[in-house]
Design a protein around this nucleic acid. Structure first.
Lengths: 110, 110
DNA sequence: ACATTATCTATACAATATAGAGTAAATGCT
DNA sequence: AGCATTTACTCTATATTGTATAGATAATGT
């Protein structure tokens, strides 16, 4: 909860998905984005549980969307990363980067 | 446990520390390396618990070292990353990289 | 042998990750 | 209106990971 915390592995992935999706980020698209980019199958329950936790910590914020003119479907809950969330991703990245730099055994991040 | 798993956030940091320390990696040096590079304080218990878990999963292996000619001190338990461990770090990196690429909001890894 | 130093082990608890079933909201059709 | 269909979210339960604290072990010098 403190401002020194790092994002968990999956929290990290989810925040990155939100950043990529910008204003199109809600449960279903977040799941798709992750599955497409990483070939990792994730349950929808895992997505929401993590989004809720991130929101409780103030790293993301959600708002209810208006219904779309599609065939049906409940209205969406859109998510965006807060400034505090951005700080947390950057802190996490920085730590990973500091631990990785100079290591050539590893496929580099860049 | 399966060969599709990703490293948790702290597991990841620890494996990277082992890779950096090469043959000097044991509890105390792992802790120092992490604290120095990331300014993150970690308890020694956290380190060992994670190392044990990583060993149980086959990502690292440990061996008992001989006593050194220092003032005292129990003999060390050295750790190294296994091939399976390397695969796991790389899988984790790849996922992170795929989720990060193209995002300029974020301080890049490279 | 005992005090000192360094390191590791055991245990317990909190936070995070995951799955799956169930519920809700919207639309189109009859 | 009532109901089926579609899309999306919520709830509950459990497993795994992350963390701290306290205590046990092993080696050395006096």
């Amino acid at each position: 909860m403190s401002d020194r915390d790092y994002l968990g592995e999956f929290e990290h992935i989810i925040v990155l998905a939100l950043l990529r999706l910008e204003d199109r980020a809600y449960g279903v698209t977040v799941r798709q984005e992750i599955e497409r980019r990483t070939n990792r199958e994730v349950s929808i329950g895992a997505i929401y549980a993590t989004l809720d936790r991130l929101e409780a910590k103030g790293y993301v914020k959600s708002r209810r969307g208006d219904p779309t003119p599609e065939r049906g479907g409940r209205s969406k809950r859109f998510f965006r990363v807060t400034a505090k969330g951005m700080t947390a991703v950057n802190r996490t990245h920085r730590a990973l980067h500091r631990m990785t730099e100079g290591l050539d055994l590893i496929r580099s991040y860049s």
